[in-house]
Design a protein around this nucleic acid. Structure first.
Length: 548
RNA sequence: GCGCCUGUAGCUCAACUGGAUAGAGCGUGGGCCUCCGGAGCCCAAGGUUGCGGGUUCAAGUCCCGCCAGGCGCGCCA
């Protein structure tokens, strides 16, 4: 296998540096210039070390270039530009030959070994079963699932995990909400409390109970049956919604399991380390002693634990289960709580660097020009299901992924449909469908790529062909970059470039033409593009249509 | 009052983590199918990157101060 262009150039520059007696302490940066006229790769190394060497950057660059030992069949041009950039233009064959590799690796092209032999846990969604998933949960679900996909692609053994609590006060209110609706449906006069769950799904569940039990539950003071039914129905509904987006979990972790013993062990351990004190009958975690803002209650004066305790215990469990990477996907409303949890874990001797907390900014819903405050309790929400009904799973996934985590997401339902018709996801999918169509056409004409080793790829000489081939060879880099930043958006941006480069190529050059050799080479290029797009779509969780 | 995030084209968002002339989509104006898919391609208009300082060869990006918006700051989860 050929070395990647980056690796190749890096090695050459390093050796040139050592030849002129510079030991490079700083990171050697090779980046892709925005402007093509500056070549395929550029390094700013001369500017970075100029001061240390006591020369001006352009002179340093000159020294480096003079000592580069580069094979002309790989590198076409090296030049010094601007304040001291060194620009490299690689020979087209460097990229063209990669097409072979792409075709040979097929659906595995782009898979990396960074996470080989390591286990990752991605916890996301984690909504308690009190109502249907909302558009807000959608962002969490899609982000978490896609990050899990990325981790799998770079080699991790990934566990998708959903953490839930079915024991708290919310669940009691939920159960009682169902009970009251049940009685109401049986004809009793009910004063339904305002702070109970207002959604219609509560009535649906009550109706199911009537179908099942008639009025037998009428005077049962026991909420258990109401709670269990509600939980089951709602959870099934949540799972169904997620499945529509292609999301399935490996583990549903019930917070309840931690309450028996685990959380008290945490208190004990923290006490041993001297980070717990009692005040007003409560036990406090000494966060201030660890550089935090204010101390936090671990155990209330009533003897009940606060939510913090199971959170800490849960993460300890994850460590004990042997994960090398622990990813939490949270909305911005959790911003204040995770630092305390991390501090506790650190004090207890766990390697906090394994924990990656991903905070995404909130989804605000605009309906009829006004911001809707989302509340499951008040039934002021737009469900994820409704959104999927409206625009389809691919658009939903793409919609949530096509912005950075830190970007606040304004969602206007009135515009959702309109936007969906012109959604950028179709731009990508169209490129894929178009290639499929070309391949069908070629096949009808009796042309196939056949054995790739017999195709003369060097016939690809046009600017658009080389540009596309070059982009395709960068697919693994795009995945790596999405992995390091935990930003699926990087992959989308890359795929957009690929689709664009393909459309340009298509409009300028005919694939199936009179020259059989060239036709084969171009078909190979098309196939390689299709593979890259399809692999990228798989990571994003969107479909790769053969027709649209 | 304190903490986190955001402010970039009319709108929704990018910008490879400090690089060279800030880019896409939608919208607006124009052009392109006798020919492998027009859900596409090409051209144009549109910007003092919220405001003011600073750091350096280089700032949308880093630091400080304002202004505006979002989310938090509980013996709720």
């Amino acid at each position: 296998m050929l070395p990647s262009a980056k690796e190749y150039l890096k090695a050459k520059i390093e050796s040139a540096l050592s030849k002129i007696g510079i030991i490079n302490g700083t990171q050697l940066n090779l980046e892709k210039p925005k402007n093509e006229q500056f070549g395929d790769f550029a390094t700013n190394i001369a500017m970075l070390i100029a001061k240390k060497v006591g020369k001006n950057p352009r002179e340093v660059a000159k020294d480096i270039v003079a000592n580069l030992e580069i094979e002309p069949e790989f590198v076409e041009k090296v030049e010094i530009a601007g304040p001291g950039f060194i620009n490299f233009k690689l020979a087209p064959s460097f990229y063209i030959q990669r097409i072979k590799e792409i075709l040979n690796q097929g659906e595995n092209f782009g898979k990396l070994k960074i996470g080989e032999g390591k286990k990752a846990n991605v916890e996301f969604v984690s909504a308690n079963p009190t109502g249907p998933l909302t558009v807000g949960h959608g962002r969490n679900a899609v982000l978490g699932d896609t990050i899990a996909n990325i981790l799998e692609w770079v080699g991790y053994d990934v566990t998708r995990e959903y953490y839930f609590n079915n024991a708290g006060r919310q669940m009691k209110i939920l159960a009682d909400s169902v009970r009251l609706r049940y009685l109401e449906l049986l004809g009793e006069k009910i004063d339904y409390p305002e702070d109970y769950y207002q959604g219609d799904y509560i009535k649906d569940i009550a109706k199911m109970l009537i179908d099942e039990y008639g009025d037998k539950l009428k005077d049962g003071a026991d909420l258990k049956i109401f709670k269990e039914k509600a939980e089951k129905v709602i959870f099934d509904d949540i799972k169904k919604t997620l499945k529509r987006l292609g999301i399935e979990f490996d583990v549903y972790y019930n917070e309840d399991w931690l309450y028996e013993k685990k959380i008290w062990e945490v208190v004990e351990e923290l006490e041993k380390k001297g980070y717990v004190y009692e005040e007003d009958g409560a036990k406090w975690f000494k966060v201030t002693a660890l550089g935090g803002g204010q101390d936090k209650v671990l155990v209330k004066s009533t003897g009940e634990p606060t939510y913090r305790l199971p959170d800490i215990a849960y993460h300890i469990e994850k460590f004990k289960r042997g994960f090398d990477l622990i990813v939490d996907v949270f909305g911005a409303d959790h911003i204040a709580e995770y630092p305390d949890v991390l501090k506790a874990l650190e004090v207890l001797g766990y390697d906090v660097s394994k924990v990656k907390v991903l905070i995404y900014q909130f989804v605000t819903i605009v309906k009829d020009g006004e911001v809707v405050k989302m509340s499951t309790r008040k039934a002021n929400y737009i469900t994820l299901d409704e959104l999927i009904d409206e625009v389809g799973a691919d658009v939903v996934r793409f919609f949530f992924l096509n912005r950075s985590r830190d970007a606040h997401l304004n969602f206007d339902l009135n515009l959702a449909k309109k936007q969906s018709e012109e959604n950028p996801v179709y731009y990508l999918q169209y490129a894929h469908a178009r290639i499929a169509s070309i391949l069908r056409y070629a096949s009808e004409m009796g042309v196939e790529v056949g054995d790739i080793d017999k195709v003369d790829l060097n016939l690809l000489k046009e600017e658009e062909e080389i540009k596309l081939a070059k982009l395709l060879s960068e697919f693994p880099d795009a995945i790596e970059s999405a992995y390091y930043s935990f930003e699926p958006l990087k992959l989308i941006n890359y795929l957009n470039e690929v689709a664009e480069a393909f459309h340009h190529f298509y409009h300028k050059h005919r694939v199936v033409g009179s020259d059989p050799g060239l036709t084969k080479a171009r078909l190979a290029l098309c196939l390689a593009t299709k593979i890259v797009l399809a692999n990228g779509f798989k990571i994003l969780g969107i479909s790769a249509p053969e027709r649209m």
